[in-house]
Write a protein that binds this DNA or RNA. Structure first.
Lengths: 413, 413
DNA sequence: GCCAGTAAATAAAGTAGGTCAAGTTATTGT
DNA sequence: ACAATAACTTGACCTACTTTATTTACTGGC
């Protein structure tokens, strides 16, 4: 099962890089404490990182006797990664630097029902434009993380779904895009990526779940900084669990699915059968309509409010289930659909876990809103590229020439 | 975070031992193929295992030219581990040998509402009797795995629940028992242990979920042979997820909990309000009564059948949720309560996943019954002791003198 | 009966990613 | 000036493997 050489479990490099990022400027001693590694390992790892220009010494810190601590800082523009999220309705791309900051972002229309080849062409074009507008040299781009709905075969870089059209089933998404733009490409479930993006490049090692709502409802679980992957390495299908055993049948075959009771599509459809239709000029597409309803709800429209509150109540039941099954202590709401109505959903979910989370006696469970509602998935895609290349648990990047792994120079005496 | 020396990730030893067990007699070359390790590593690992008497060569196999393969076999009675499962209603203890076979088992009454000290005294006594009746020398016993309901703090060996009585909250279960019997002790959630026990010592590396029903309803998820542990290292609380957002309120605070709709306690209570009460002479304790109802259902009693089918239908919804969230391809029903009625529950659950498992298009999802309904949790406890000592991901054993780790001799030239 | 051919097992050396312990270097207090 | 102190570095070593080369043990052709 193992590749030649010795398999790196969680190499020091990723841990050290994360620790530096979290603390902006740090001394080596602090890194010893933060990573749990020994001083010797820190010395060597920092030397490697300096030799490739990822970090740099920026001065010293005097504090009493002894040799002063030499402060280390990231070189944010040493390298970049690109993240793209797309679904039927919308598409977002970001460029993230080594510091984990978004240096450029843009959105464009979703895939709609176009052929995958056409979508890939758009994505490629989009990436090129983004890179040139940010003036990021191509040589500094490590790779692209593409995130979209599942199921998918991450290792093969292929989608396993016939949504939105049958052409996507088995379509070699990663390989096609990699061929086009000549950069390594990795694919990931959007909800899982949103979870990773929520955490960002910093503060890794935490455990939490995300609820992701954009076109549909998905979720992701992160444990000690690693995304949870099931047996077939797919995500956590929150949208299609049943919260009402006697509810309506869903296209997935289940009854009383969360997505079928509370998803944007259903809420918009319900709204179109009420006075909201004319009041809000609905009919401009699911996500646009949903946001309009959301803003109306926040503004006090009682019909809109009732729809959103109803949806939030259903989703809250799912959140309690998620918390009970995965035993997480934190849940984050993210995804474009929560942009306006996040607070309503958050409140319902917090109530639900306060009352119904089995482990609440052992540890409190917090429900939060994301600070980057509409970009989390794209950011996650970008973050996963760097993680993958640093070998922190991940792997599977497709390049024009097959799998690849970033190699940094070994310790140079 | 790491202990001194180099931390063994998943040492070859556990993998080799598993591979030998699976195949009964194997040659080193076959082990190379089975484990993915190289021939050199197999040579060294097998030598270490032979030097401690865990395996032995038992002949050769000729097949054409070349040096004949030397066949290797486990020495099943090289060492033993003890596993105990207890809850309010029942208690089971097993001795498992290195081959993973149960060499002795016995049951005794559950903890009822006795004080933890008294329960520990009983368990200790029970273990001593079991060891002497099986004529297993104490020196060959590696440790004891105690499994019971959660939540618990595995590392500390302490229960974090005030069920069934407040005395259990914070009670140092592992330390008390270890002091009493002078053997290392580890604790584990019963449902998680049942999952591990289901897999047994052999065929490790698989991924599946178990539904465990004894006094209550729990579940466990195993991924690549490792039990899933959430943020607070507790199990998967299937019993307290909601399958009916508008259902009755549970003591846990949630509404429409599976356990509160379909658990043995509730089913027995319902039955006591029907003609079944006198017909089956109910009132002998929850688990005894539940089994009586189950046998009546299997024998065709319509009232009993209706109760069990209703329970199975509710649990089936939970199974679909479990499958969708954890993305497993196999679910196993285990636990004493399924002894008679397993087939009914299995059928309902299989129907539910056939219709509602999101990933069924990507891979089929099988629902099975355990082959060791009432012993899986105890066996799991015993298996976890060996796994823990071999360092295959687990740790946390409490001994009279603190944490401990089995050390086998290094390679001897 | 000897020797080539072949397969299995092992020895020896190398590698990756770390640890440990004993330096070296830079600064402060006296 | 010089000890004390703290930060960092060096070099030897360790574990758990790998790769490569060698030894061992058997078969079959002549």
């Amino acid at each position: 099962m193992k590749s030649p050489g010795s398999p790196p479990a969680v190499p020091a490099m990723a841990a050290v890089l994360d620790a530096i990022r979290d603390r902006v400027t740090v001394s080596r001693v602090e890194l010893v404490g933060a990573t749990g590694l020994t001083a010797a390992t820190i010395t060597n790892t920092v030397r490697r990182l300096m030799s490739v220009g990822y970090v740099r010494e920026v001065g010293t810190l005097q504090s009493g006797a002894g040799s002063p601590r030499r402060l280390i800082r990231l070189e944010p523009d040493a390298c970049y990664t690109v993240g793209i999220q797309f679904d039927r309705f919308t598409s977002t791309a970001v460029i993230v630097d080594l510091a984990g900051d978004v240096v450029e972002r843009s959105t464009m229309p979703g895939a709609a029902l176009r052929h995958p080849d056409s979508v890939v062409a758009s994505l490629g074009h989009h990436i090129e434009e983004l890179l040139s507008s940010a003036a990021v040299p191509r040589s500094k781009v490590l790779g692209v993380g593409v995130t979209t709905h599942g199921p998918q075969d991450r290792d093969a870089g292929v989608l396993l779904t016939s949504n939105p059209s049958i052409d996507w089933l088995g379509y070699p998404l990663a390989a096609s895009l990699s061929d086009l733009i000549d950069l390594p490409v990795l694919i990931e479930n959007d909800a899982t990526a949103a979870a990773v993006g929520e955490e960002g490049l910093g503060s890794s090692g935490s455990s939490f779940a995300t609820v992701y709502m954009s076109g549909g409802i998905g979720s992701g679980v992160v444990l000690n900084g690693q995304p949870y992957r099931g047996a077939s390495s797919n995500g956590v299908e929150l949208g299609h669990i049943s919260v009402d055993a006697f509810g309506p049948r869903c296209t997935c075959g289940n009854t009383g699915c969360i997505e079928n009771l509370a998803g944007p599509t259903v809420i918009v459809e319900k709204a179109r059968n009420t006075g909201l239709r004319s009041r809000l000029r609905l009919g401009q597409g699911t996500l646009v309509d949903f946001k309009a309803i959301g803003r109306a709800a926040m503004a006090g429209d009682p019909d809109a409010r009732a729809l959103i509150e109803g949806s939030a109540a259903v989703l809250a039941v799912g959140v309690a289930t998620l918390v009970n099954l995965f035993d997480v202590a934190r849940v984050v709401f993210t995804g474009d659909a929560f942009t306006d109505v996040g607070p309503i959903y958050r409140r319902h979910a917090q109530d639900a876990v306060d009352k119904g989370a089995f482990m609440r006696a052992v540890h409190p469970v917090r429900v939060e809103q994301s600070r980057q509602m509409s970009d989390a998935a794209a950011i996650g895609g970008a973050v996963l590229v760097l993680r993958s290349l640093l070998g922190a648990g991940e792997s599977a990047m497709r390049t024009a020439r097959g799998a690849e792994r970033l190699s940094l120079p070994a310790a140079v005496p």
